[in-house]
């Protein structure tokens, strides 16, 4: 690869009030460098999209943010509220979710033998306190929390448009519905930042349009910041305020969708390295 002759690209500059800030993150698996010196910040209330060819390190970045992988170098700080800064590196995934950073998965990972509403309830209940004793005895607090969790889960199903499917098994839902259910489950954990890993993968055009609307509503109505990994350029260009581009684990460009589209390094990365099936049609940006 001819590396673009750039000094230091980061997606940090211009972000005054970040909700999450990644600095100089490096992740290696044996000899393979999955992320190399990546710096990136998501502004509070913004939708930031991370794009890049397959294997560019997008999901690795998500896995570092959510504690599945621990980076070799670099820091990640999370600011659930302005001024309140928590380092994320080395924390367990469930702690990170409880701090307010929720995610969905590239290959949907629902609890398939549970109903849609039970899936969402599990998310709501990650914030509750009932322990085994309370649960066994069905103490008043347990009942109260159970009712609250039912109500909240129904609200969220309504929000993503799955109210009618509440009592169906997660596995019995259509693909697009499963994607939305996964988003509802993530929202149920009351995040400040939502990470969406290729939410549009495998959805049809109608579902994609729904999804686009849903992501906007999550951003505006719920006031959440969103970090989005997506291959579908139309979706990225329409919802994201800023776009960061990864290639071979390096950040090669960052900026508004229009800027990124014109960036020669981005065009080269996609046309030169992407697999023909997904990359070309997506990346040739008008």
């Amino acid at each position: 690869m001819t590396a673009p002759p750039v000094e230091e690209i980061d997606a940090v500059s211009g972000v005054d009030d970040p909700v999450v800030q990644v600095s100089h993150l490096t992740l290696r698996f044996g000899g393979v460098t999955s992320l190399s010196d990546v710096s990136l910040a998501v502004a509070r209330g913004e939708i930031l999209a991370v794009i890049g060819p397959n294997g560019a390190g997008k999901t690795s970045l998500f896995n570092c943010l959510t504690g599945v992988y621990v980076g070799e170098k670099g820091t990640i700080s999370f600011l659930p509220r302005p001024g309140e800064q928590v380092p994320l590196a080395g924390r367990k995934p469930h702690r990170i979710t409880q701090l307010g950073l929720a995610r969905t998965f590239q290959n949907i990972r629902l609890f398939n033998a549970l109903t849609a509403i039970e899936n969402v309830k599990i998310g709501v209940e990650s914030r509750q306190r009932t322990g085994p004793i309370g649960a066994m005895l069905r103490l008043p607090r347990t009942r109260r929390e159970d009712r609250a969790s039912d109500a909240r889960a129904s609200e969220l199903l309504e929000f993503v448009g799955l109210r009618a499917q509440a009592n169906r098994l997660a596995a019995a839902l259509s693909y697009g519905e499963q994607r939305r259910l996964e988003i509802a489950r993530a929202l149920a954990t009351q995040p400040a930042l939502l990470l969406l890993d290729e939410p549009a993968a495998g959805t049809n055009p109608a579902e994609k349009a729904d999804l686009e609307r849903l992501i906007r509503r999550i951003n505006t109505e719920m006031g959440l910041s969103v970090l989005l990994i997506e291959h579908d350029m139309r979706l990225v260009m329409s919802v994201a305020a800023r776009v960061a581009v990864l290639n071979f684990g390096k950040l090669i460009a960052a900026g508004t969708p229009a800027e990124v589209q014109r960036n020669p390094a981005v065009i080269e990365a996609y046309l030169g390295a992407a697999d023909p099936e997904e990359g070309e049609s997506d990346a040739a940006p008008g």
């Binding site: 959510t66 599945v68 367990k92 995934p93 469930h94 702690r95 979710t97 409880q98 929720a102 995610r103 998965f105 990972r109 629902l110 609890f111 398939n112 033998a113 549970l114 039970e118 309830k121 599990i122 998310g123 209940e125 990650s126 914030r127 509750q128 009932t130 322990g131 085994p132 649960a135 066994m136 005895l137 069905r138 347990t142 929390e145 159970d146 969790s149 489950r185 993530a186 149920a188 954990t189």
Partner: peptide, 29 residues
């Protein structure tokens, strides 16, 4: 145990049994 099964705790156990990674990502220790 019947109460336990149909509670937050029982659901969390089911989640862990089904997909531990997703359970942790949903905030279950």
């Amino acid at each position: 145990f019947r109460q336990l099964e149909n509670s937050r705790v029982g659901r969390a156990w089911t989640a862990i049994r089904e997909d531990e990674v997703a359970a942790a990502a949903t905030g279950i220790p």
